[in-house]
Amino acid sequence: MQLPIVTIDAFTDTPFSGNPAAVCLLPGPLAEEGMQLIAAEMNLSETAFLQQTGPTEFKLKWFTPEKEVDLCGHATLASAFMLYIEEVVDENEEISFDTKSGVLKVKMVEGEIEMDFPLLATKEESHPYFADNFFGQKIVGSASLKGNWILELESFHQLEYVEPEFHLLAMHSDEGIIITSKGNENFDIYSRYFAPNLGINEDPVTGFAHCALIDYWHKKEGKTKLNAYQASKREGDMRLELIGERVKILGKAVKIFEGFLEV
């Protein structure tokens, strides 16, 4: 059987930057074991699997090379972008994705993909191992969230200099660690995300992490809108808006590859 698959760079409009995701629109049901094998073969931070259930309704699942995850921003953006550019769904229509994190609504707004995601609550507390510094860089604030930690560094320059030892990160984290800092005249906040226990040493641009980062920075500074930059080697950016218990995430995408898998 042949399965169509595309690779899309999310949170960017420049090829070979942002966060690449593989997107597979399934012609019918596929066992989760098969999805995991495909995700391992694609070896990207996430592979998204879509199954159409209505004109603009889809089941959506996300897999890293090692496990299924509950929420993924860039692969959701990539999935919606693929559905629009391949004209599976008209650009004027809103898409509903049925996921492990509930129904996610996504639409096209002036050339950008706007996603309606759940807010991820954070709790101010010190990390049991990385309490004062993170691989030589001073920590000035920290918070926990489900499966992850946020560590705030003094400046975006220090954030960019961090060179983690991934075996230590894996020992002292569940899913991963988000590092963040205040931004500059270009962006309100900077961040990076490390998740060796998910099979992703460093994720290029992470939508779900920003559902927690906007909670962290809102509690710290009261902001409800942020221009965010993720300072990985591939780099990417997004716009965030906090609305109650939801987060609107806006970003762009570009298609890189399309083909078929023989399964």
Rank of each mutant, 00 (worst) to 15 (best):
L3M: 05
L3V: 02
P4Y: 06
I8E: 00
I8Y: 00
I8K: 01
P15A: 11
V23R: 01
P27I: 09
G34P: 04
G34D: 13
M35F: 11
Q36A: 08
I38L: 14
A39F: 03
E41H: 12
M42P: 03
N43P: 10
Q52L: 02
L60I: 07
K67S: 12
D70R: 14
L71W: 04
A80S: 10
F81E: 03
F81Q: 05
I85E: 13
E86L: 07
E86A: 06
E87G: 00
E94M: 14
F97K: 09
D98Y: 11
T99P: 09
L104E: 02
K105N: 11
E112D: 10
E114D: 05
L119R: 13
L120K: 13
E125F: 06
S126T: 13
Q137D: 05
Q137C: 12
K138C: 01
L145Q: 10
N148G: 02
S155P: 01
F156S: 12
V162N: 04
P164N: 11
P164F: 12
L168I: 14
M171L: 15
M171S: 15
H172L: 02
D174N: 12
I179E: 10
N186G: 10
N186W: 00
D188T: 04
S191P: 01
R192Y: 05
R192G: 01
P196M: 02
N197V: 05
P204C: 05
F208N: 08
C211W: 04
L213V: 03
I214K: 12
K223N: 08
K223D: 05
N227W: 01
A228R: 01
Q230K: 03
E235K: 14
I243L: 15
G251R: 12
A253M: 02
V254M: 05
I256N: 04
E258S: 15
G259T: 07
V263T: 15
